[in-house]
Design a protein around this nucleic acid. Structure first.
Lengths: 149, 149
DNA sequence: GTAGTTGCAAAACTTTTGCACGGCA
DNA sequence: TGCCGTGCAAAAGTTTTGCAACTAC
């Protein structure tokens, strides 16, 4: 399953960076493109290994620095989990993450009711909501069919 | 705001531990009581400092070991956040966490619709759900009224 | 030209683990 | 008494930071 469908062009990324007065270096463009294109919720390591294929000198520090920029710009969300497997997603719409605790895959599920629940909750206690995270943890169908460990 | 309202007695905790053939040491009892009673979503450090008041020799390692036991027993949930501030909560019912990104406080909000959204999502993609997490990030009313930093 | 960025190494933190001692059952 | 649990220190793992060299603009 290829992830880089080039839905986001170099030009788009360059425009985003320039708008924030950030330099459009090849490393940054590659990191941004990969994570913004991906629907796989990659880890920093995943991104590092993938970007290294085209830019062998890139460092993990640069990956983290670029991911932090994208977080500040609100273009990606950081999903932390127990056992230190932080993952990054570019889907900014309110949605549900189905997280398989056996294979680690994450599926996005849309449900319009998520928005109305958020609206109800923040009204109840007067809260300025800025983002959200809705995870469901369990075992996916494929893993359920496999023999237990 | 006192947190130890003794809603959970030593006897209850001892019974829980013995049922799992775990020894009911004073440290474990204190750690379990504190985190199971708390509605403040404490960090491991918070728990360590508080338990140290009554058990000065307790170590952070013991706190982590005990928290891991409680997690395995399904009695608490671990909430990880960016910047490494993992927090623990004893509210096992599906609910929403309103997380203030300025003061760090977390409020629980109940909404029965959370359950139906979960049911709908797991049916759509055939998923064995075991637990969930629904966070809303933003700024609480009190912090909104304060001057910006 | 120069201000911002990279890549390396080291630091900072959180959480886990190994092991000898000590205490619960 | 025997075995499990504790507490210390060290390890492991992830993310951040300082800095000299480099590069996009």
């Amino acid at each position: 399953m290829s992830m880089n469908n080039s839905q986001i062009s170099d030009e788009t990324v360059i425009r985003l960076l320039r708008k924030k007065r950030l330099k459009a270096t090849p490393q940054r463009i590659a990191i941004c493109r990969f994570v913004l294109d991906s629907r796989e919720h990659p880890t920093a390591q995943n991104i590092y290994i993938k970007v290294k294929e085209m830019h062998p000198t890139v460092s993990l520090a640069t990956v983290y620095k670029t991911l932090n920029i994208l977080k500040e710009l609100g273009l990606i969300k950081e999903l932390t989990f127990p056992q230190g497997e932080t993952r990054f997603e570019s889907n900014r719409e309110p949605h549900i993450n189905l997280v398989c605790q056996r294979c680690g895959k994450i599926w996005d599920v849309d449900d319009l009711a998520v928005r109305s629940i958020i609206a109800r909750a923040v009204t109840k206690v007067k809260f300025n909501a800025m983002s959200e995270r809705f995870d469901i943890y369990g075992v996916c169908e494929r893993c359920s069919k496999r023999k237990a460990l």
